[in-house]
């Protein structure tokens, strides 16, 4: 028990002030340069202030002092314990060349599930349009009106159209980037509905894709639709699938945390989810540029074989990249 409170405070105050200063230095990022002795001192002061907080907590009138010591202990606790779970910091280039592809491969099972759901949606959409052509209107959203008409008419119009300087290609690219990124974030977020929302979104995207492709192929325009969709779709569709992969990772944390609490599992998965989302955003920037500046030019301007070859080349680069084929680039010897 502390008999002389004033003396106790006078004796301990320098330690509290020193700990406060070290916490400020820590929050400025100075702790990484501390020698071992400074780290030990920091830990000693944390324990000392903690002990003083316990002692002072028996004094009913010392609300202000308790609050101050409580705040010091809270900051010290956050600094000391957060450090243990902090992952290695990597640079942007390192993350782009190695981090994102490695995360993708480490959690590829969720990607396979996302791809399976999308393919199932494709099959459903394709069969629906084959069996009942009017199903196209139910599956394809009203905002994509140009897809609801006859494929032959659209192909004729597009192939005869010559590029004009009045077309807003840059604005189109920006719209594709932001719209697709929104859809991807949605696919990730819906993982918190135990994955039900993510599965529904992937299936619906697949159904739309299947309905469009089958509609054009059935009308004899398989080459057109391949030349139109492949250049941007070869990056855009995997990007949406990776967003679904991230959403499913969240869902697995809720559904099957694997012997740990959901909180622990979610905490562990967050870096993977963020890495995947950032990778998706980059992929969609590229897909948006291609979709606006390359995909709309058809036979009259660009031969289909060239567009298809371009799409295949992109796909090969993407597969190589995600497989870790560029991991050695920029690596330190």
């Amino acid at each position: 028990m502390i008999i002389d409170l004033a003396r106790f405070i006078e004796k301990e105050k320098p330690f509290w002030a020193e700990f406060d200063q070290l916490l400020d230095a820590h929050s400025r990022g100075a702790a990484s340069a501390w020698p071992l002795a400074a780290v030990k001192r920091f830990h000693f002061l944390y324990e000392k202030v903690s002990s003083d907080l316990v002692k002072i907590s028996t004094f009913s009138g010392e609300r202000e002092l308790r609050s101050h010591l409580g705040s010091l202990v809270a900051r010290g606790y956050a600094a000391i314990h957060a450090r243990q779970r902090r992952t290695r910091r990597i640079g942007l280039l390192d993350w782009f060349l190695r981090g994102f592809p490695a995360t993708f491969r480490r959690t590829i099972a969720a990607f396979h599930v996302a791809a399976f759901i999308t393919i199932a949606g494709c099959v459903f959409g394709g069969i629906a349009v084959l069996v009942e052509p009017d199903a196209k209107e139910a599956i394809i959203p009203g905002m994509a009106r140009e897809l609801l008409g006859s494929p032959s008419e659209r192909v004729k119009d597009d192939e005869q159209r010559t590029p004009s300087g009045r077309e807003r290609r840059t604005a189109g690219a920006a719209w594709y980037m932001t719209h697709n990124t929104r859809v991807s974030i949605f696919a990730v977020s819906l993982g918190m509905t135990f994955g039900i929302g993510t599965v529904a979104l992937l299936f619906y995207n697949g159904a739309m894709l299947g309905a469009i492709v089958v509609d054009y192929v059935a009308d004899g325009h398989g080459l057109f639709v391949t030349g139109w969709l492949l250049p941007h779709g070869v990056v855009e569709i995997p990007a949406i699938l990776i967003a679904g992969q991230a959403g499913l990772l969240l869902a697995v944390c809720l559904i099957r945390p694997g012997g740990r609490s959901r909180k622990e599992k979610l905490r562990e998965r967050l870096p993977d989810v963020v890495s995947l989302v950032c990778g998706v955003a980059l992929m969609l920037v590229w897909a948006g540029i291609v979709e606006s500046f390359f995909s709309p030019y058809h036979a009259g301007v660009l031969p289909y074989w060239f567009k298809i070859a371009f799409g295949l080349a992109e796909g090969a680069v993407l597969v190589t990249y995600l497989s870790g084929g560029f991991a050695r680039l920029g690596a330190r010897p």
Binding site: Y77, A78, A82, I185, S189, T193, L270, V273, V274, V277
Partner: peptide
């Protein structure tokens, strides 16, 4: 848990505003 926020936490909590 009363610890400092990590960058991943900031990103995820704000991305999920959409839902």
């Amino acid at each position: 848990a009363g610890l400092d926020l990590s960058f991943h936490q900031v990103v995820v909590r704000n991305l999920l505003r959409f839902i």
